[in-house]
């Protein structure tokens, strides 16, 4: 039952050749001058990259867990939500909706609207994601604001290690979130740790990544366009739907203004 039978041997041969090439590269002695990407240890780099998210997601997850515990459900429901839904703003909103006994359709539609901003993230990452396989699905599933910012803003250690690097970043970020949510729900009202102000790490992370984008594009147009759209959206639709409206408007203006970027 192999639909692509004629291709299979060629594909197999190619894979064996690639494996052999990797084995040769891996056997090379370590030489700092010729930094061949023979090491597949992208984990230290991924951990360093996600460090600010750790300090942002754990307190935020704690806050969610504490709020969720007030609904009176066992802690593992918060864990399930962090594992399956994995969307910060939507989870916070859901606590209120669940408390009010909102309808399932209302909960679904609200989540859809709140997360519609993610539509614009895939647009710019599509060329860099693997073509298929479990990695593509997991990367797509885990594309939160912060994960998007890291994936879009950081160059992988080597092009052929990109997928591994991206998956590690995504999984680490989700691990922080799951840990925070679980811990918060477990501790419930017992949490007295003063983490006020620590949520600024996420703001600082976005500032740093915006500066990095400046070095990447060296063109003020996308920044000014976005700033204008953001302020306009704040005035026009208010703070709740500002991001979605501004992202849509900025994408449209960028596309209309494409000729001036040549």
């Amino acid at each position: 039952m192999t639909p692509a039978a004629p291709d299979a041997p060629a594909h197999d041969r190619r894979r064996r050749r690639t494996a052999a090439a990797w084995a040769t590269i891996a056997a090379l002695p370590t030489c700092p001058t010729f930094d061949v990407p023979h090491t597949t240890h992208t984990f230290p780099a991924a951990f360093r990259a996600t460090w600010p998210v750790l300090f942002g997601y754990v307190p935020l997850g704690l806050a969610f867990g504490v709020l969720f515990a007030q609904l009176g459900h066992p802690w593992y429901w918060a864990t399930l939500m962090a594992v399956a839904v994995y969307a910060g703003a939507a989870q916070f909103l859901a606590v209120g909706l669940l408390a009010a006994g909102a309808g399932i359709i209302e909960i679904g539609l609200t989540t859809l609207l709140l997360n519609a901003r993610h539509l614009f993230y895939g647009l710019s990452l599509a060329p860099r994601f693997p073509r298929g396989g479990a990695a593509r699905w997991y990367l797509t599933f885990g594309l939160t604001d912060e994960t998007y910012a890291l994936l879009a803003g950081l160059p992988p250690p080597a092009p052929e290690l990109a997928t591994r690097f991206y998956v590690q970043i995504t999984a680490l970020n989700q691990a922080y979130w799951v840990a925070g949510c679980t811990l918060g729900a477990l501790l419930g009202a017992a949490v007295t740790v003063d983490v006020q102000g620590l949520d600024f790490v996420l703001t600082a992370l976005f500032v740093v990544l915006a500066v990095e984008q400046w070095y990447a594009v060296r063109n003020p147009r996308p920044f000014l366009t976005a700033a204008g759209c953001g302020l306009l959206a704040l005035l026009a639709v208010g703070s709740q739907h500002m991001l979605l409206a501004a992202l849509g408007l900025a994408t449209l203006l960028l596309l209309l203004d494409r000729r001036s970027y040549a």
């Binding site: 990452l125 998007y148 910012a149 996308p222 976005a226 992202l247 994408t251």
Partner: peptide, 15 residues
């Protein structure tokens, strides 16, 4: 979009 949208998105995320 892959080249210029991230710059716009980061600016918006700060806002």
């Amino acid at each position: 979009l892959g080249r210029y949208l991230p710059a716009a998105v980061m600016t918006l995320l700060v806002l």
